[in-house]
Each structure stands twice: as structure tokens, then as C-alpha cells.
Design a protein around this nucleic acid. Structure first.
Lengths: 111, 111
DNA sequence: TGATTATATAAGAGTTTGGTTATATACTAT
DNA sequence: ATAGTATATAACCAAACTCTTATATAATCA
């Protein structure tokens, strides 16, 4: 199923932000919760929530509530998911960010 | 060669505009000159020139002066060219726009 | 040369974006 | 219940974006 050019442009525009693109790259490997992103990006919690909301509104990510946390993951059902994956392959790994988070004991280990 | 995540985000943001994404899709098949885009988009000539300049500044397109016209084409040497092509495959064809232009006798046939 | 056509650049207006702080909501645990 | 933690929303502001009009530059041609 092919989206319109406007819909596709909207997705690309959303991905064309360093913070959101990094978020998606991180979610490529693993789900993350809001407070982890806050630590990761050194940005206010509302800023993080607003980025996640935009990604969720277009269906690129899904949320998953566990305990008091809201975890996000890539939505593999999105019509552009294969394209998104291909784009993320062109982005350098951001795993060191998660490693640092783990070292600092800030990684949320839930369920 | 892999670009930084900032550089990649900048490319995606540029592609995340309906006008520029349509331009790139059109250039996927053929080169076009500024005045053709002006006709195609029904937008002022400076607006078109400014979009093309942004695409040129990041190296996504190349210019090619012939007679009094400046033709643009995709830059197949760009490090993200393979990704760009893959993205454009996910965009519906815009060929009817060129057809209409030809019907109106506005297509520039040069060299 | 001077007129015409094509393109680029500059300046400015209106809109969108991405952050902030303040506040509301929701869940957990004592 | 109440306190504490996690997340979302609202209001606001500064910066970035995308047009517009006006003007400059460059090439063609009578």
C-alpha cells in the first residue's frame, strides 16, 4: 500500500530531526521509556514527550504501558516500516548512548 | 561512506517538504529546468530557485547550464544517493505533471 | 546596443517548529 | 489516603522555514 506524497513527506520531515531520528535508531534495537530518553538526551521531559507524541501520531511508534512507565517501540505495521528500517540502516549506531545509560544504572529493567 | 546522524537528518528534513520531494521524484526520471518547475508548481520563480538551492547546497542535485536555461538532475555521486532512490521508490509517480506540461507545450526541449 | 528571457539573491511577512516552565493526570507504594 | 514518581498537556517564546515582492545578474537575440 502506497501513501500519498504528502503523507510520505510528513514522515520524512518528522525523521529529519536529530533527536527524533536518534530516538528511532535506538528503538530499532530495543524499546525505551520516556525517562530513559530524558536521561539520554539531557533534555526536559516535556520536550521528549512532545517528540514521542509526534512520532506516535503518525504511527511510526507504539506505546506500551508497563508498571509506572510508558515504553515505546517501532510500529512494524506502519506502511512505511520497511522504508524506515532502510533509512535507519543508513544512520550510525547509537548504542554507546544506551551503554552509558546502563553504566550509570539509569536503564529501566522492567518485566 | 556513512554520514553523521546530523547530516542524515538534514537530508531527510529537506526531503520532508512536499515541493522538494516532488522535485526529486520528477528528477528521478529526467532533468528539469527552473522555468519548468515554475510552471509545474504554480509557484513564484524565486520560491522554486530557493528550493533548488537547498537541494543543491547539500549535494542532492547538480546543475547543468544549457543555452539560457539551468537544468537540474539528481547527483548520483551523493553518499546517500542509494537511500534517496529507495525513498523515491516509495513515492507515487509524478509523471502526469510532466505529461500535462508537454501537452501545454511548456516542456523545454534543449540540445 | 538594447530588449527580452531565465535565474539568483535580498529583504520582509506570516507560519511552523522545538524548546522552556508550569501544571495536570496517572500509577505505585507506603 | 498520601507521597512520590512518571508522563502528558498548556502556554509561551525564539529560531527556523517558506513564501512573497523587488532587484540584480546572466545569457540570447533582433
Amino acid at each position: 500500500m502506497m501513501l500519498t506524497i504528502e503523507e510520505t513527506a510528513a514522515i520524512l520531515k518528522l525523521m529529519g530531526d536529530k533527536t527524533r531520528l536518534t530516538m528511532l535508531k535506538l528503538l530499532e534495537g530495543d524499546s525505551c521509556c520516556v525517562c530513559e530518553f530524558v536521561e539520554l538526551f539531557g533534555m526536559s521531559q516535556p520536550a521528549i514527550s512532545q517528540h514521542l507524541r509526534k512520532l506516535k501520531d503518525v504511527g511510526l511508534i507504539k506505546e506500551n504501558k508497563r508498571h509506572q512507565w510508558v515504553f515505546y517501540n517501532l510500529n512494524t505495521d506502519h506502511p512505511l516500516y520497511p522504508l524506515v528500517v532502510r533509512i535507519l540502516e543508513s544512520v550510525p549506531s547509537q548504542q554507546e548512548k544506551l551503554l552509558r545509560l546502563t553504566e550509570d544504572g539509569k536503564r529501566i529493567d522492567c518485566c
